[in-house]
């Protein structure tokens, strides 16, 4: 059984929605692990706020306002407090144990420093928005992928509460993790891979709960064709041995279908 022990949710100011937090907690609940929320106060922003010419363009009012250190720190405190309250509410509702910390520093760096191989770090793919301006998601993604932790990438669309768990054959850890989740969730496990891969795989699930589908080549078109018609609740793949192009193809298809993707990290014990 894979040894995921906690789910890490990096929270930045104004970047964490209730949906994201809820889905993260649900995954933790499903896996029977705790969740660790860390709110990172962007150190660079506090510094910028001390410049006399510093201004912020506020999205809700579309107006410019002067920035100062005090107000930024106050906003950070409020945002952290809100995030903690939200996390507490959701975790208490599902009975998931949680921990919450506030730290200051570089957001990607702080989270990266916390991660270990038994973690699942949660990232939410931004909706159409301004993350491209700051490349914050890109940095978080790169940091996560550079760690030993597994990565749970949540799509910008509404996710399905039910549906099969799909595993792309390619690494034993990914299949085991997918089987483990399918078993916990009471869902069917759908295995996608070549005929040879499918013939050689064994999972610890009843036969009637496992389906195999041939995926001759990992292209977007082939993947779309192979995925279950009714939709899936989770796509699991092993980061080992997956080329960036193929990984990107998988992520694009998953994003379009509103399917979360769990990239099982290299450090997870088999």
């Amino acid at each position: 059984m894979p040894h995921h022990r906690r789910l890490v949710l990096g929270i930045h100011h104004g970047a964490t929605s209730g949906d994201l937090m809820r889905h993260a907690v649900e995954m933790a609940h499903l896996l029977g692990i705790g969740i660790f929320g860390v709110f990172v106060e962007d150190e660079a922003l506090i510094g910028v706020a001390s410049f006399p010419f510093a201004r912020e363009f506020r999205l809700h009012s579309h107006e410019w306002h002067a920035l100062d250190t005090d107000s930024v720190e106050t906003e950070f405190r409020h945002a952290a407090s809100t995030a903690k309250r939200l996390l507490d509410t959701v975790t208490q509702g599902l009975g998931v144990r949680s921990e919450f910390q506030v730290r200051r520093g570089n957001p990607s760096g702080v989270v990266a420093a916390l991660l270990c191989s038994s973690d699942i770090v949660v990232l939410a793919e931004p909706k159409l928005g301004s993350s491209g301006l700051t490349q914050s998601f890109l940095r978080a993604w790169q940091t996560a992928c550079g760690s030993d932790a597994s990565v749970l990438l949540l799509p910008p669309k509404r996710m399905r509460p039910r549906g099969s768990v799909v595993a792309l054959l390619g690494g034993e850890r990914g299949v085991r993790t997918a089987a483990h989740i399918a078993g916990l969730a009471g869902e069917t496990l759908v295995l996608l891979g070549s005929a040879e891969q499918l013939a050689g795989v064994t999972v610890d699930l009843p036969v009637d709960r496992v389906r195999g589908r041939v995926l001759s080549d990992l292209t977007e078109r082939a993947l779309r064709f192979a995925l279950p018609e009714g939709g899936e609740r989770l796509l699991v793949l092993d980061r080992d041995g997956l080329s960036p192009e193929r990984e990107a193809a998988v992520l694009r298809v998953a994003a379009a279908r509103g399917t979360p993707v769990l990239l099982v990290g290299p450090g997870v014990a088999g």
């Binding site: 104004g14 912020e56 363009f57 950070f76 301006l133």
Partner: peptide
Amino acid sequence: GDTAFSALRDKALARNILILRTPNGFALA
């Protein structure tokens, strides 16, 4: 969106300016 954001980001970087996310919006540094 990406095209617009990339263009702005590149333009800013060319002038040694970064765009930062603030609690309420964006700032330039």
